[in-house]
Simulated assay, not measured.
Amino acid sequence: MYKFSPSLMCMELTRFKEQVEALNERAHFYHVDIMDGHFVKNITLSPFFIQELRKISKLPIDAHLMVEKPSDFVDMVIDAGADYLSLHAETINGDVFRLINHIKDRGRKFGVVLNPATPLDSIKHYIHHVDKLTIMTVDPGFAGQKFVSEMLDKIKEAKKLKEENNYKYLITIDGSCNKNTFKQLVEAGAEVLIVGTSGLFNLDEDVNKAWDKMMETFNHEVKDITNVAN
């Protein structure tokens, strides 16, 4: 079954509790973007946001650290309640094994994120430790950007590697997951779709109705592919 992870930077924050309580019954993960204004030119959510989210949800929280120095944030987001820590490969080469060991020693899952221009080969020495592999299909930093179709080949490569080596990572897609891309992503090997503005929240003011519309579209687009989500 395919899984869906709402990107909460795209939600209506004035209706935080209402929307989270609705999504608790439908989503599989929550995706929380933490940006420092340096690695990307934007500032979004924070460890405090995760702390507040944890109070009203038991779903797994995936903290996506779009920051220059992830080691400065790791313990903060773990203490706040994150279950997965997804770190950009571009930021961790200097201490990646130390970070992996620390995250797993604290009982959390290690995720790695690849920007569109970063090849899968760049993580070959630690890919076997990865629990969640996130492939960016847009350049990071802002919502609503154009889908980078060249990333379909990277998704296929990640799926092939996973099957050939019995790796356990979840193939996760971040960026422009919506009615125009669902079929291509699933066919390429996507397992978790991070849905934001175009894929979910802009479909209806009522997030319950928005979810139903998203799933109707998704199931229609992938109806000829096996293991379609319910």
Rank of each mutant, 00 (worst) to 15 (best):
G37Q: 10
V96G: 04
E18P: 05
V192D: 11
G199I: 05
L203W: 00
N227W: 09
R54V: 02
N166R: 15
V20Y: 07
F182E: 07
Y169F: 14
F49C: 03
M214G: 09
L85R: 11
V40R: 05
G81N: 12
T197A: 02
V112D: 10
I135R: 06
I103Y: 05
F16L: 13
F110C: 10
V112C: 12
E150S: 05
H38L: 00
V186M: 11
D121Q: 14
S176W: 06
H102D: 05
L45P: 01
A210R: 09
N180W: 01
N24Y: 14
K146V: 03
K183P: 02
A22F: 07
I171D: 13
Q184A: 13
P119I: 08
F48W: 15
V32H: 04
V195D: 05
S57F: 13
L59V: 00
V207E: 11
E25T: 14
N24L: 10
D174H: 04
H129S: 09
L13I: 01
L87V: 09
D206F: 02
G107T: 04
R106I: 00
D206K: 04
L200S: 06
F73G: 02
I50Q: 04
A82E: 05
F49G: 03
E205I: 01
E157Q: 12
K69M: 07
D206Y: 03
T118E: 12
E221G: 00
I34G: 06
Q19C: 07
E90V: 02
M215W: 13
E205R: 14
I225N: 14
S122G: 01
E12S: 07
D95F: 00
M11R: 08
I127C: 03
L53C: 09
T44Q: 09
N219M: 04
P60Q: 15
G81V: 10
M35L: 08
E191S: 00
N230T: 15
F97A: 00
E164V: 09
L65N: 05
R106Q: 06
R26E: 11
K124Q: 13
W211L: 14
T197G: 03
A190E: 06
F218R: 08
S149A: 02
V96C: 00
T197M: 03
L170A: 09
G144S: 03
E68Y: 13
R106W: 10
D72W: 13
H102A: 00
P6H: 12
A158V: 11
A117P: 12
E164D: 14
F201S: 02
H128T: 07
D139P: 00
H31T: 02
V222Y: 11
G144D: 05
L170G: 09
V148K: 08
R98I: 02
E191W: 02
V112G: 08
G144A: 06
V74R: 02
K223L: 01
N202D: 14
N227A: 12
D83V: 06
G111K: 08
G196K: 08
H38S: 05
